[in-house]
């Protein structure tokens, strides 16, 4: 775990699946000292109003992320290549979650 600058417990990212087959989406974050506490805290904060059926908890420092200063170098080269987008295809009727 990375050093906390304050007395907060380590940070965890919370992912929730709303219903069977749906993608598991990032919902927010919580603090917890261990895996079980992370699950319970996420349950109490994010799923008390029927928001989900499955929770994933990931220690925030286990996530590899791009840095915002690299945004231009990282993402701009794809900007002028619309042919890379699969938007020229017809999506069959009834297909969701795309």
């Amino acid at each position: 775990m990375s050093e906390n600058k304050n007395d907060q417990l380590p940070l965890w990212e919370v992912f929730i699946q709303k219903s069977n087959g749906a993608p598991i989406k990032h919902a927010g974050s919580i603090h917890a000292s261990d895996k079980e506490m992370a699950l319970q805290n996420a349950r109490d904060i994010y799923t008390r109003r029927n928001e989900g059926r499955l929770l994933w908890l990931v220690p925030s420092n286990a996530i590899v992320a791009t840095v915002i200063e690299d945004e231009a170098d990282f993402f701009d080269p794809a900007d002028d290549k619309p042919y890379r987008h699969p938007s020229f295809y017809e999506v069959p009727e009834g297909v969701t979650n795309i």
Partner: peptide
């Protein structure tokens, strides 16, 4: 003691 536990106890 922490926000998360506060919410847990109120729940």
């Amino acid at each position: 003691p922490i926000l998360e536990e506060d919410l847990a106890m109120v729940n």
